[in-house]
Design a protein around this nucleic acid. Structure first.
Ligand SMILES: NC(=O)c1ccc[n+]([C@@H]2O[C@H](COP(=O)([O-])OP(=O)(O)OC[C@H]3O[C@@H](n4cnc5c(N)ncnc54)[C@H](O)[C@@H]3O)[C@@H](O)[C@H]2O)c1
Ligand SMILES: NC(=O)c1ccc[n+]([C@@H]2O[C@H](COP(=O)([O-])OP(=O)(O)OC[C@H]3O[C@@H](n4cnc5c(N)ncnc54)[C@H](O)[C@@H]3O)[C@@H](O)[C@H]2O)c1
Lengths: 211, 211
DNA sequence: GCTATGCTGTGAGCGCGTTCACAGTGTGTG
DNA sequence: CACACACTGTGAACGCGCTCACAGCATAGC
C-alpha cells in the first residue's frame, strides 16, 4: 500500500506545490500534463517530478502523460487526512493575523478552530471568524477541539512554553515562526519558518552573486 | 581569505540563527560558549557548529571555547555588507504589512527603503515609516534607491512580472512568498518561503507520526 | 611532573536525496 | 508493416552535506 509509507519532507513540500500548479492547469481547462511541464513550473527536474509522482502511487502513461484530475486526486489522498485536521494558532500578532486571515476557511481539510493570545484585548474576541482563547486554555482547548497542528506566532522567549502546552494537549505538528529550536518529544514534528533567517540568506547571496 | 568563499545556503541560515542565540547569551552577560551549547540551542550537532564557525574564519580555543563577542563580530563580518543593503517590499497586503512592521528599523544593515503596491489606496502613503510607491515605479525606484533585495508579498499570478521589474532595476536577491517558481537570470538568488507548503508538510507528518 | 580531562579542528566516511541514462511502450508516419 | 519518436518508470551512480572519530593541546588534579 503506497499511501502508508512515510516519505521525505522535501517530497511532501514539492507535492504540495504540484497540487497548486495542477489546480491552475485544471481551471485553465487543461486535462493532461507531462513531467517536463510540471518540472519547469515547479523549478525542479523532470526526473524529480516523475519520482515524486511514483511515491504517490500514481502512474501516468508515456503517451498522454498524467491526467490532471486523477493526479490531483492522488495528491489529495496523499496529503489530506480523510476527515481533515484541526489547526490552532497561538500568538495573534501582526504575523498571526495575516496567517489567520489567509488560512481561515480556505482549506476545508485544514480547519482553523482556535486562536490563542496572552493579550486580554484579543482573547475572548472572534477574529477572522475564529474564537480567540486566553493562553492559559491552550492545553485544554487543544485537547477538547482535537487540534493536531499548531501554528506558533509568539515571540521567541514564549515559544517553548507554548509548544509544551500544545504538545500536552495532543498536538502532533508545529509550524514555528519563532527563531528558536523547539524541544519536543519524539513523534511531534516541527517545521521552522524563520523569515529573518531567510532574509539574511537572500542578503548574503545577493551580495555574493552581485559583487 | 576565508570571507570571500561562497558557502552553502544551509550554512548561512544556521549562522544567522547562531547570531540570534549569541545575542541572547551576550545580553545575559555570558562571555564564552562551547560548541555543544550552541548545538543544543540551535538544534544541530556540535560538529556541525564547529564546521560552520570554521567557515566564518573564526577559531575558538579548546580551553575556553568561543568568545561570544568575537564570534558575533565574525558573523557580522560574514553576513553583513559593510555599508548595509537596501531592501524593498512589493505587495503591502496582510503579510506585507506584518513583514514591514517587523523589519522596519530593526536591522541597521538591512534598510527597508521602499514599498510598492498596485492599490492606489496604499501607494503614495507612508507605511511603517517607509514610503509606498505605485507598482509602475518598481524598476525606476529599485534602481535609484540601489535596492539589492526584494521581498515579494504579491499574489502568485503577479509574482513573475514583479520579479522581472525588480531584476530590471538591479535587484540581486528575492525573498518570494508566492507559491510559484520564479524564473530569473543567473546571478539573481531566489529564496522561496511558501507557508501553505510548510503547513501541509506539518499536517502530513502530524498525521504520519500521530497515527 | 605525570596522568586525566574535555574541548577544538579536521580527515575520512557515510547516507540520502537527486540526477543520469536507458529500457519499455504505444503512437504517428510513410 | 517498419521505423522514428516522445514520454514514463527505474536501476545505478553521483554529489554533497553531515557525522564520526580522533589527533592535538592546554589545563586541572594529584
Ligand atoms: N512579523 C514578521 O514579519 C516576522 C518576521 C520574522 C520573525 N517573526 C517571528 O514571528 C513571531 C511573531 O511575530 P509578530 O510580528 O506577529 O509579533 P507580535 O508581537 O506582533 O505578535 C506576538 C503576539 O503573541 C502574543 N503573545 C505573546 N506571548 C504569548 C504567550 N505566551 N501566549 C500567547 N500569546 C502570546 C502577543 O500578545 C502578540 O499578540 C515572533 O517570534 C517573531 O520573531 C515575525
Ligand atoms: N498571508 C499569509 O499568511 C500567506 C500564507 C501563504 C501564502 N501567502 C502568499 O503571500 C502573498 C501575499 O499574501 P497576502 O495574504 O498578504 O495577500 P493580500 O491579498 O493581503 O496582499 C496582496 C497585496 O499585493 C498587492 N498587489 C497585487 N498585485 C500587485 C502588483 N502587480 N504589484 C504590486 N502590488 C500588487 C495588493 O494590492 C495587496 O495589497 C500571496 O502570494 C500569498 O499566496 C500568504
Amino acid at each position: 500500500m503506497p499511501g502508508s509509507a512515510v516519505v521525505a519532507a522535501e517530497t511532501v513540500g514539492r507535492v504540495s506545490l504540484y497540487r497548486v500548479l495542477l489546480s491552475g492547469l485544471q481551471q485553465a481547462g487543461i486535462k493532461g500534463v507531462f513531467s517536463h511541464q510540471l518540472s519547469t513550473s515547479a523549478g525542479v527536474s523532470a526526473a524529480q517530478v516523475r519520482r515524486d509522482i511514483i511515491t504517490l502511487g500514481y502512474s501516468g502513461s508515456p503517451q498522454h502523460g498524467y491526467d490532471v484530475a486523477e493526479l490531483i486526486e492522488s495528491i489529495d489522498n496523499f496529503l489530506d487526512a480523510p476527515d481533515g485536521q484541526n489547526v490552532a494558532l497561538v500568538g495573534v500578532g501582526n504575523l498571526g493575523r495575516a496567517v489567520a486571515s489567509y488560512f481561515a476557511g480556505r482549506r476545508p481539510k485544514l480547519r482553523l478552530v482556535a486562536l490563542f493570545d496572552i493579550d486580554p484585548e484579543k482573547s475572548g474576541r472572534v477574529i477572522c471568524g475564529v474564537r480567540c482563547y486566553p493562553q492559559e486554555k491552550i492545553t485544554e482547548v487543544v485537547r477538547s477541539e482535537r487540534v493536531s497542528i499548531v501554528i506558533l506566532g509568539v515571540p521567541a522567549p514564549a515559544a517553548q512554553a507554548v509548544a509544551d502546552a500544545c504538545v500536552a494537549g495532543g498536538a502532533r505538528g508545529i509550524l514555528n515562526f519563532a527563531p528558536v529550536a523547539l524541544r519536543v518529544p519524539p513523534g511531534v514534528y516541527v517545521e521552522n519558518l524563520d523569515m529573518a533567517r531567510s532574509l539574511e540568506k537572500v542578503a548574503y547571496f545577493a551580495r555574493k552573486a552581485g559583487g
